[in-house]
Design a protein around this nucleic acid. Structure first.
Lengths: 148, 148
DNA sequence: ATAGCTGCAAATGCTTTGCAAGGCC
DNA sequence: GGCCTTGCAAAGCATTTGCAGCTAT
């Protein structure tokens, strides 16, 4: 699979202006349809964020972008499959999609269900057990739960 | 903050014989009904485990314990509410309940959805950011994802 | 006796899917 | 034009709830 042409730019900065979103979709091998473009802009144009499908759907509606909930789910999963997003499940009620695909961790505010990024370098892990059977570690997630 | 009362035995050994499970329910203020006792035994009599509602339900059936799925969910949540279990949501597909309520972390096997405990002391965190707004940290969860 | 459980099945909420119509290359 | 996407609504899961009957205390 993974037939990409790559300009080695994917995981750089949050993307500022408008044109880049289109390129990003193309690079990922996703057709830049009206819906995907609109959703990608909502997701990537304002820095890193954490959204649920429902949330993004409502935002789209507010912005007069006409998409169905099913399409939002499709887009979110397509983006995730291509590495444009990362899926996070902390609360069984619903999944969140994180526009920050780089190495980092999270604060989780238990009272609100809100999520906030922690830059990777702010968490220093001095010791970690090896995986049983010498298996490969695909990632380490640290979640700091905030009570208040 | 580990608000525990009991006889300081909760996170010690896995509970061996039969009587203790009953006491534990009583201590928690839960009526030791036939169903809860049976479920509690399945959960606590064999060391620490991670189970989903469906799993526990099937185990009960296998052991000829007659309970409904709804009762399993009720019991699981009642136990969790009283601090006898801890709920974990890593996979949005379903929640797991961990009989180990002490401080510890997890290996998560992505291909099987299986979960395995990591003793707290095996993960050493050298630096941790403070919570925004000086809020209180209620816990730190570390999940090591295993690819294979 | 009585407040608290349990069981069943229907209800709910999030997410996925099927299939016809539409849009990008 | 062909194939990928979309959109709706219906289908699918895991989980919850309502209410009559049961059971610890």
């Amino acid at each position: 699979m993974a037939s990409k042409k790559t300009t080695a730019k994917v995981s750089g900065s949050p993307v500022a202006a408008g044109g880049t979103v289109l390129e990003r979709l193309r690079d990922a091998g996703l057709r830049p349809t009206r819906q995907r473009l609109a959703l990608a802009k909502l997701l990537f144009a304002r820095g890193h964020r954490h959204v649920s499908a429902e949330q993004l759907f409502n935002e789209a509606k507010t912005q007069r972008v006409d998409v169905s909930l099913a399409t939002v789910y499709n887009a979110l999963h397509d983006f995730t499959g291509k590495g444009l997003l990362r899926e996070i499940s902390i609360d069984s009620a619903s999944s969140y999609f994180d526009t920050n695909t780089g190495d980092h961790h999270h604060f989780y505010f238990e009272h609100s269900g809100h999520l906030e990024d922690i830059e990777a370098h702010r968490v220093v892990i001095a010791a970690l057990p090896e995986a049983p059977g010498g298996a490969a570690i695909s990632g380490v997630d640290v979640i700091i739960r905030i009570k208040a």
